[in-house]
Amino acid sequence: MKQAINMSHLFEKLKDLKALFVYGEKLIPIIQSLVDFMKDTVPLLENINHSIADSTSKIPKASHQLNNVTSATELATTEILDLVDAVTKEVRGVEKSLKAFINSEEEKAKLFESLSPYIQGNPEALKIYEEIKLKVTAPQEINPLYESFTKIKDYAYNITLSLQVQDITAQQLAAVNHLIESVQDRLSGLISDLEINEVREFGNLSMPVPEGVTFDPNARYDKSDQNQQNVDEIIKAQSETTTQDEIDKLFS
C-alpha cells in the first residue's frame, strides 16, 4: 500500500517535471531571442558610451578653437584698423597738400589777373600772357581730385565702422562657448553616473574658456536704425514716466 502511494507521488512529480519541460520548451525561444537582443544591444550601448566619451573629449578642443577664432579675428581686425589708419593719415596729408596747392594757384591766378591792365596795347606781351594763362591750373580742375580724396577718407572711416562686427561676433562666439560649457557639464555628469572608465583615458576635460569673458547672448550685427529707434522710444517713455512721477511726488 505504501509502495503504491510512493509510485503515485513519483508519477505526480514526473508529471510536474514534464510540465516544466513543456514550459521550458516554450520558454527557450523567448530566452533565445532575449539573448540575441542582448547580443545586438550590448555593442550598441558600448557604441553609445564610446560616442559620449569621444564627444565629451572633443568639446574642450572645439571651445579652444572658438577662442582661437576670436583671438585671430581680433588680431586681423587690429591689422585692418592699422592699415585704415595709415591710409587715412596719408589721405589727410594729400588733402592738406592739395588744399595748399589750390590756395596757391588761386593766389597765382589773382596776381596774374592783376598783371592784365599793364600789358594792354602790347601784342607780344598779351600773346605770352594768354599762353601762360592757359598753363595756370584752375582750382575747378583740382577740386574734383580734392573731393575724391575726401571720399576715400570717408570710405576708410566706413570700413572702420564696419569692423564693429568683430566685437559683436566675439560676443556671439563667447555665448556659444558658454553653451558648449553647459553641454560639457551635463555630459561629464552623465559620464560620472555611467562610470565610463574609458573617458578618464582622455585626461583633463576642463574647458579652456578664458577668465573674465563677458558677453551679451543676444548680440547681433544689425545695421538698421530700428534698434536705436527702439532704444530712443524706451528712453523717451521712461523719462516721461519719471517726470510724471516727480510731478506726482511734488503734489502728494
Binding site: L161, I168, Y221, D222, Q228, V231, I234, I235, Q238
Partner: peptide, 18 residues
C-alpha cells in the same frame, strides 16, 4: 535699457553705432 536708466546713465547707444 531701463536698468541703465535707473543707474542714471545720460544716454544709450546700441552697437553697431553710426
Amino acid at each position: 535699457i531701463i536698468e541703465a536708466l535707473k543707474a542714471r546713465v545720460n544716454n544709450y547707444v546700441v552697437k553697431p553705432f553710426t
